[in-house]
Amino acid sequence: MKKILTALALSFSALIATSMTFADPPHNDRGYQNRGNGNAYGHDKKKFRDFNQDEDMMQEQRREREERGVRRLQQHRWQPGYIMPQHYRGDGYKVAYKDKNLPKPGKNQQWYKINNDYILVDSDSNSILRILGF
């Protein structure tokens, strides 16, 4: 009986050991496999470097797109009746009419300073009502 139990225990441990050698290595959140030959994060150094280069290239493309958009908005010619672009509706562009000697805005109106122009905008419809260039 003792020999049977010993044989079963050995065969079971051998089965577990062989099944572990065929298992896939664990994956991390970036999709790379941890093969133990990389850096402390478990990445293959070449793949980790490629990922950083891809990330840098994506950030550079995003920055260039944003700069093109800002240049396009700076070249924009404002006219009454146009809708104020959402990019300019933030508090950073709002100005106090008293500080700049502007006419008092009506109800639901706000003055904005954009590209050295003062623009009166209807807050409800975001349409441009008046433009003062200085």
Rank of each mutant, 00 (worst) to 15 (best):
T6S: 11
K47S: 10
G133D: 06
P26L: 12
N101P: 00
F22P: 02
R68W: 06
Y112P: 01
A9I: 09
R89C: 04
R72N: 14
K46M: 09
Y97E: 03
D91V: 07
N28S: 10
N39E: 13
R130C: 00
G69E: 12
S127I: 06
F22T: 13
K107R: 14
I128D: 03
Q109D: 02
D122M: 03
H87M: 07
D91K: 11
A17S: 10
R89K: 04
A23F: 11
W111P: 00
L102S: 00
S11C: 13
A96C: 06
N37P: 03
Q61V: 09
K113C: 05
R35I: 14
I119N: 01
L8T: 06
Y88P: 01
Y97T: 01
R72A: 15
L120G: 02
S123N: 08
Q86S: 10
I4K: 07
G90C: 01
N37E: 14
E55W: 10
Q79P: 02
Q59V: 07
R89D: 02
M57L: 15
D29F: 11
R130I: 00
G36S: 08
Y88T: 04
K98G: 00
L8S: 05
G92W: 01
P80D: 05
R68G: 03
I83S: 12
Q53P: 04
N108T: 06
I16G: 04
S19R: 08
K47A: 14
L5N: 12
R71N: 13
R130F: 02
G133H: 08
E66L: 09
K107D: 11
G36Q: 07
K3A: 13
E55R: 13
S11R: 04
R35T: 15
L129D: 03
Y41D: 15
N116M: 08
E55G: 03
L10Q: 08
Y41M: 13
A96L: 12
Y32F: 15
R65T: 08
S127H: 07
S19E: 09
Y118R: 00
M20E: 10
K2I: 07
R35A: 13
Q75E: 14
T18F: 14
M58C: 04
L8I: 08
Q74T: 06
G42H: 07
D124W: 01
S125E: 03
F22L: 15
Q109K: 04
L129N: 03
D99W: 01
R30K: 15
